[in-house]
């Protein structure tokens, strides 16, 4: 069992390495992709600067906390798109019969499929996340917590994307449904959680878990609370189990296809 996990991790890292190697063949595109993503993320801070010139606090946050929130949002999204990029495209793999390649390999189909591609611009998101942490104020404790929450948030984001994308096992054109829900998760990640009313908050801490991938980690870095920390880690475990369960439940309905395609 341990050996199996070790070998699976080895394949994931090898896949990541080869994907990055592919992108690095064109140095200019590789670097500009990362740089432009950092610039793109920075531009969003301007709207917050304008808002804070009108109001001192928004949802209990000042500009400092907003920068931390952006750091967590950008970092979690970046990490999920670097390692688990294809979780966001699982619908396409299901509908177009592209899981065949992974099904004939002696590895975990779900993990092999979602880790088979890397979005290079996401490296920019991850770097931007850490820049935000440095602007917010870095300490050893903050750095460790931030890193743990990026990993947990990245896994939550990818697991959620996988679950909604698995809709394609049951419904035709499940990609529309999956894209809509994945986008909600990403779009709401950069707003302070406290601006939402109770009903919406419940939604964000359960069905669309942006609260657990973003809002609660920010709160926990600002004011450390062990219960919150355990809850974030525990929820990460729960959503991973759910994602695996949904995928393997759906896989029994997988119908493959005879479309001509290649692995690029």
């Amino acid at each position: 069992m341990l050996m199996e996990v070790r070998n699976q991790i080895k394949v994931i890292f090898l896949s990541l390495k080869y994907n990055i190697m592919r992108e690095m063949t064109n140095k200019i595109t590789f670097l500009s992709n990362i740089l432009f993503m950092i610039l793109n993320n920075s531009s969003f801070i301007i709207q917050w600067v304008v808002l804070f010139s009108l109001k001192q606090e928004i949802g209990g946050y000042t500009m400092k906390e907003i920068i931390l929130l952006w750091g967590i949002a950008s970092g979690t999204f970046g990490l999920s798109k670097i390692v688990f990029s294809r979780a966001f495209e699982l619908s396409e793999l299901i509908m177009e019969g592209k899981l065949d390649t992974f099904l004939v390999q002696p590895k975990n189909v779900f993990l092999s499929a979602i880790t088979s591609e890397t979005k290079i611009s996401a490296i920019g998101d991850l770097i931007y996340g850490y820049i935000c942490l440095f602007v917010y104020g870095v300490t050893v404790k903050n750095f460790v917590l931030f890193t743990i929450f990026l990993i947990a948030g990245g896994i939550i984001t990818a697991a959620f994307a996988s679950i909604v994308n698995c809709a394609s096992f049951w419904i035709v054109k499940g990609d529309f449904f999956a894209d809509a829900l994945s986008n909600i998760m990403i779009d709401f990640a950069t707003y302070p959680g406290n601006i939402f009313k109770e009903g919406v908050k419940i939604l964000f801490y359960t069905v669309i878990p942006v609260g657990l991938s973003n809002y609660l980690p920010v709160e926990t870095i600002i004011n450390f609370n062990l219960v919150n920390f355990v809850w974030i880690i525990g929820f990460t475990g729960i959503i991973v189990v759910v994602a695996f369960w949904v995928f393997y439940k759906g896989l029994k309905r997988y119908s493959s296809s005879n479309l001509m395609n290649s692995r690029i």
Partner: peptide
């Protein structure tokens, strides 16, 4: 398995790198 209509190889990699990758897949 060889599916003539579906490639399993990574097209941006050399055959050698592909075989190394498949070697890792099969431990």
């Amino acid at each position: 398995t060889v599916f003539g209509q579906k490639e399993q190889l990574w097209t941006h990699l050399t055959p050698y790198d592909n075989f190394k990758f498949f070697g890792a897949i099969y431990d």
